Amino acid sequence: MKTPDFVQLHHDSAEHIRHELVQGLTANPQPGGATVSPKFLYDALGSRLFEAITELPEYYPTRTEAAIFKTHAQAMARAMPPGATLIDLGAGNCGKATGLFDVLRPSRYVAVDISVDFLRATLNLLQRQYPAMDLVGIGLDFSQTLELPPQAGEPGAGPRLLFYPGSSIGNFTPTQALVFLRQVRAACGPVAGSGLLIGVDLVKDATELEAAYDDALGVTAAFNRNLISNVNRLVGTDMRLPDWAHHALFNPMASRIEMHLVAQRDLMVQWPGGQRAFSQGERIHTENSYKWTVAGFSQLLREAGFAEPLVWTDAPSADAGRFAVMWAGA
Rank of each mutant, 00 (worst) to 15 (best):
L119D: 00
L123G: 02
T207D: 13
G153D: 07
A245Q: 03
V203K: 15
K204P: 00
V191P: 01
A192T: 12
Q144T: 11
W244N: 03
L209K: 04
Y213M: 05
V191N: 01
L123H: 03
G166T: 08
R128D: 14
E210Q: 03
L178Q: 08
L197K: 01
S167E: 07
Q183W: 08
S167K: 12
G137I: 03
P155I: 02
R160H: 07
Y164Q: 04
E154R: 14
F250P: 04
P174D: 02
G170I: 04
D205R: 02
V136G: 09
L197I: 06
P190F: 05
R185E: 02
L140C: 04
F180S: 01
V116Q: 07
R160G: 03
G158P: 09
T220K: 11
G158N: 05
P174T: 06
L123M: 07
L119Y: 00
L148V: 01
V179T: 15
L148Q: 02
L148D: 02
T175W: 10
L126I: 10
V203A: 09
S229H: 15
R225G: 01
A121T: 15
A245S: 11
R128A: 13
D243A: 13
R128T: 15
E147P: 00
F223M: 00
V231W: 12
S229R: 15
P155C: 02
V191G: 02
G199L: 13
L181W: 00
Y213W: 06
A211Q: 15
G153F: 09
T175V: 14
F172Q: 12
F118M: 15
D117Q: 14
A212Y: 01
E154K: 13
T122S: 15
N226K: 05
L135D: 01
L119S: 01
E147T: 15
D215S: 12
N224A: 14
S229I: 10
V200D: 14
A221N: 08
L148C: 02
L135M: 04
Y213Q: 04
I169A: 08
L140Y: 05
P190D: 06
D243E: 12
I228F: 02
G195Q: 08
F163L: 05
G156M: 13
V116L: 06
A221Q: 07
L126H: 03
F118T: 12
F118D: 10
G195W: 08
R185C: 10
L241R: 08
L227P: 09
I169S: 06
F180R: 06
A121Y: 04
D113P: 01
S167C: 09
H247G: 04
E208D: 13
Q151S: 11
A248F: 00
T175H: 14
A192Y: 10
L181K: 02
A132T: 13
G156L: 12
G139L: 09
S168G: 13
L125Q: 15
L181V: 09
T175Y: 10
R120F: 11
Q176S: 14
V219Y: 09
S168I: 06
A216R: 09
Y164R: 01
G218K: 10
T173Q: 09
L197W: 02
I138M: 04
R160N: 05
P155G: 00
R182V: 05
T175I: 13
A221E: 06
Q144R: 15
A121P: 09
L162N: 10
D205Y: 01
E210P: 03
L125G: 14
D205S: 09
F118G: 11
L162P: 10
A187L: 00
L196M: 07
N224S: 13
S194R: 00
L123N: 04
